Amino acid sequence: MPSETPQAEVGPTGCPHRSGPHSAKGSLEKGSPEDKEAKEPLWIRPDAPSRCTWQLGRPASESPHHHTAPAKSPKILPDILKKIGDTPMVRINKIGKKFGLKCELLAKCEFFNAGGSVKDRISLRMIEDAERDGTLKPGDTIIEPTSGNTGIGLALAAAVRGYRCIIVMPEKMSSEKVDVLRALGAEIVRTPTNARFDSPESHVGVAWRLKNEIPNSHILDQYRNASNPLAHYDTTADEILQQCDGKLDMLVASVGTGGTITGIARKLKEKCPGCRIIGVDPEGSILAEPEELNQTEQTTYEVEGIGYDFIPTVLDRTVVDKWFKSNDEEAFTFARMLIAQEGLLCGGSAGSTVAVAVKAAQELQEGQRCVVILPDSVRNYMTKFLSDRWMLQKGFLKEEDLTEKKPWWWHLRVQELGLSAPLTVLPTITCGHTIEILREKGFDQAPVVDEAGVILGMVTLGNMLSSLLAGKVQPSDQVGKVIYKQFKQIRLTDTLGRLSHILEMDHFALVV
């Protein structure tokens, strides 16, 4: 994948999101292997301009796509893939009243899908469409860049269908997702969380590099694949309309690839034109409109599966009536509230959605109805927002919020430890010299600072030695090549209790 991002070429006709291997024109390309080798690009942008032909009021008969309808489940399912879809609609009884809503608040519980998330729908649909058009064949390999849930859905379907599955996901995604993927037989590649989507090191860039190296491999490409919004247009939206008897006044959905909100909203605009569509985008993402909503100094966020630093091709923002931004604290607070007060075992993005819903639905009156999409299960986040310690460490809970008995030293300040200034190293000294210094002084790690004293990161003896043994660096290389740029900081005025929580999850903390 090139470091400079080429513009994806656009073909003359058809839909841009065809499933299957992508040609340089962004659509299915038939021909000899030699032709494909000559024409197939190194990668295709996940934010390529959409060429979708959908228009409100256009006859369904003019759609270029294969459409399906929700099917009634048999008493005995032939395999677990038949437990994807037909998820329950559940009334939220307490939270709406707590925040003064007059309307009825309903939750579409997508964590009841077989793999635990709304992404099971698009995973199965992308595979079925690729099999139907002859792209996927027995023994082929599926590769997908994902925040985890699409990966789980694909790995689940691949396990049943017999495909090899490789999932490329950023490091910030939970260990629970990784464990589930491994249990399903998927191979996992992790990428830096802070890598831009168009960087060769991003999950998108690495996935395309693997595709170019592995024979008979395919990126189904949830960011561009029409099967993504079509899955929701054909099934999720129809289920909502049936469950609500066609009567709903507002739908609120958090947005990642945009397939969920695009597919549902398009069908609702056709069948229930008075329904307002509300999009939820986390602070630090750029999906919301108008652009002024996205202006923030924050560039990272903890909530998973929603928000991006690019506009995915499948996201149709014209069908969203209003956007709201959400933050991590309210997302996790509301997710825990949904679990504790409503018994809905949902993930953090569901918290984002409901946090926005109780604001947006203030305009609705008694007798009206708001539906929220709860995308995934708490299963993926047992060591994250479900953990009091994690919430404390991230600053989303305060010590006084917890009532468990603490040891005698818990409320003492870090400054009472009488710490001395640490050994520091410059980023320009060599790895070999740094190892000598650390061994001589008896230290395992040291902060790396520039000549102005600005902290650049941390270097550890173990990481340097393993990097040297693996051949990633040489003793003569500058130590700046092996620094940890993500590390926890703590102030002298913070409590030892807070430091204790940090050290339970990290090997060190830097006192500043």
Rank of each mutant, 00 (worst) to 15 (best):
3 S>R: 13
5 T>S: 11
8 A>R: 11
10 V>H: 01
13 T>A: 11
15 C>E: 11
16 P>R: 01
16 P>Y: 14
17 H>A: 08
19 S>V: 01
21 P>W: 11
21 P>Y: 01
22 H>K: 01
22 H>Y: 07
27 S>R: 07
32 S>R: 13
35 D>C: 04
36 K>F: 11
39 K>V: 07
45 R>I: 12
45 R>E: 14
46 P>A: 07
50 S>C: 01
53 T>R: 05
56 L>W: 01
59 P>F: 01
60 A>V: 09
61 S>R: 14
61 S>D: 05
61 S>V: 04
62 E>R: 04
63 S>A: 12
65 H>S: 01
65 H>K: 05
66 H>M: 09
66 H>W: 08
67 H>N: 01
67 H>A: 07
68 T>H: 09
69 A>S: 05
71 A>T: 12
73 S>N: 14
73 S>I: 15
75 K>M: 14
76 I>R: 03
77 L>Y: 06
77 L>K: 07
77 L>H: 04
78 P>I: 06
79 D>S: 09
85 G>M: 01
88 P>G: 01
90 V>Y: 01
90 V>I: 01
91 R>V: 05
93 N>T: 11
93 N>L: 14
95 I>D: 03
97 K>A: 01
99 F>C: 09
99 F>A: 13
100 G>V: 07
100 G>E: 09
103 C>P: 11
105 L>A: 04
108 K>V: 01
108 K>W: 01
110 E>V: 03
110 E>S: 05
113 N>H: 10
114 A>W: 07
123 S>N: 15
123 S>M: 01
125 R>A: 15
127 I>H: 01
128 E>S: 06
128 E>R: 03
129 D>C: 06
130 A>C: 07
132 R>Y: 01
133 D>C: 05
135 T>N: 12
136 L>G: 04
137 K>Y: 14
138 P>R: 12
138 P>N: 11
143 I>K: 01
143 I>L: 07
144 E>W: 05
145 P>S: 04
147 S>I: 01
147 S>V: 01
151 G>F: 01
152 I>N: 07
154 L>A: 10
157 A>G: 10
159 A>E: 11
160 V>M: 08
161 R>D: 05
162 G>L: 06
162 G>T: 05
164 R>A: 07
166 I>F: 07
172 K>S: 05
173 M>L: 06
173 M>S: 09
176 E>W: 01
177 K>D: 01
177 K>T: 01
180 V>K: 01
181 L>W: 05
184 L>H: 01
184 L>F: 06
186 A>G: 06
186 A>R: 01
186 A>E: 06
187 E>T: 15
191 T>L: 04
192 P>A: 01
196 R>F: 09
197 F>C: 05
198 D>K: 11
199 S>F: 03
199 S>A: 05
201 E>Y: 04
202 S>V: 01
202 S>L: 01
203 H>I: 01
208 W>S: 05
210 L>K: 10
212 N>I: 06
212 N>Y: 04
213 E>C: 08
214 I>T: 06
215 P>L: 05
218 H>G: 01
219 I>G: 01
220 L>I: 01
221 D>A: 01
222 Q>R: 01
225 N>V: 01
226 A>L: 05
230 L>A: 07
233 Y>E: 01
233 Y>R: 01
234 D>I: 01
235 T>S: 12
236 T>A: 04
241 L>T: 07
241 L>A: 13
241 L>I: 01
241 L>Y: 14
242 Q>M: 14
242 Q>R: 10
242 Q>F: 07
242 Q>P: 05
243 Q>C: 07
245 D>K: 01
245 D>C: 13
246 G>R: 13
247 K>V: 04
247 K>Q: 13
247 K>H: 15
248 L>R: 03
255 V>T: 10
257 T>E: 05
257 T>L: 04
259 G>Y: 03
262 T>Y: 01
264 I>G: 01
265 A>S: 10
266 R>G: 06
267 K>D: 05
269 K>I: 04
270 E>T: 06
271 K>I: 10
272 C>H: 15
274 G>C: 01
275 C>T: 01
276 R>I: 07
